[in-house]
Design a protein around this nucleic acid. Sequence first.
DNA 1: AAGTGGTCTAGACCACTCG
DNA 2: GAGTGGTCTAGACCACTTA
Lengths: 227, 227
Amino acid sequence: MLRALGEGEWGPGAMIPSEADLAARFGVSQGTVRKAIDEMAAENLLVRRQGKGTFVATHNDPRAFYRFLRLASNDGSVRPTRSVPLSCRHVAATEAVAQALRLQAGDAVVTLERTLNFAGENGEHVVLDEIFLPGDIFGSLTLERLQQEERSLYSVFESWFGVRMIRAEERLRAIPANAHAAALLVVPEGAPLLLVERITYTYGDRPVEWRRGFYNTEHYHYFNELS
Amino acid sequence: MLRALGEGEWGPGAMIPSEADLAARFGVSQGTVRKAIDEMAAENLLVRRQGKGTFVATHNDPRAFYRFLRLASNDGSVRPTRSVPLSCRHVAATEAVAQALRLQAGDAVVTLERTLNFAGENGEHVVLDEIFLPGDIFGSLTLERLQQEERSLYSVFESWFGVRMIRAEERLRAIPANAHAAALLVVPEGAPLLLVERITYTYGDRPVEWRRGFYNTEHYHYFNELS
DNA sequence: AAGTGGTCTAGACCACTCG
DNA sequence: GAGTGGTCTAGACCACTTA
């Protein structure tokens, strides 16, 4: 019911009409609108704020900056992260990339490399990300533009390309570090790394990002809640 | 409101009173009861079944047998698992165990080792679990009794000790296989393994299990949904 | 004070299950 | 057909935010 509207009518961060207005517009009662909004809020599509209104979820909100980052320090300390872009190239999709992004092999793809840094005594690089994005949307991405950004990648993607990341699926494995990752993460070649493969979806379950993250889990870990 | 009741009044798998009965009992309307039940169902404490009733969640239900197991085959195939108990010893809690289970170092603890097997061509052992349980609850656990069981561990714990696992926190790291794990999982010593540390909680956020799972992620992976 | 979401009510009707 | 959860209504009142 409201899903179709959520896809275009109100931009990220915008306030949607009040429950009473929506009820009148759709010819249902306020309680019904309320329930629909509740469901979308449970899916992190909307954010309610009492006394203010209901807003379209956005990665530009500091509260949601690291919504998809499940990394925490082993000793419980919380440090700010910094993303360091390394490369940004325009290539043709390999079979694997095409399958993940539901493209044809050979289609235009933007591939991006970056490390995640945690501030602190040693300031080590903890994550190396290889990111693949469909070229038809992200074709104008360049390393220079990224290097001038302080915000999170998803925040940038949202501002520049209007792509809101809604949900993601991750697959985790333990693998030996290859030479490239070992050099960037400053670990011996062959050292165990946590490989986090992520496919990120936007509205309509369209995959818009494939990401392979190499995590050095010596001082950090991936956390998860099960219920 | 209903939480206090959920802790003892109705057993696992039992049907709770109808929404109308509960409304009368607490002097609120059916809609309010409904909302409370909705919230508990969202936390997997209750299970609703239209036309039948609302039931207390249980690990004995086939639908929930592997609620906490986030392991899937890389090729998408689904195979039944088999748990092979290896040892069951009564020991004194080390510092690490005591902290995880909120006990004092030296308190009685039951430690259990088992592998998880996936049926199939090769029938390999994919997971080695080291499980630590508070001795005051699980003191009567023995290897012999476990070996005669076909059900999941949590299902057994629920039947034998009345302990329902409600939620869990997991921390994941990549580590090199030690000699013990390498032998049981049939991988070279030092091969990368996924270490999944889990603390499992029962009602009242009481930790009742600490588990260290060593996952061989060559043909399987840990999956997760982010939203 | 006006507008927002948050909670609750009392009742209606529907969809599903089972004897 | 009786009993269950599933959905919806129209309205009341409360808590929070902002001007």
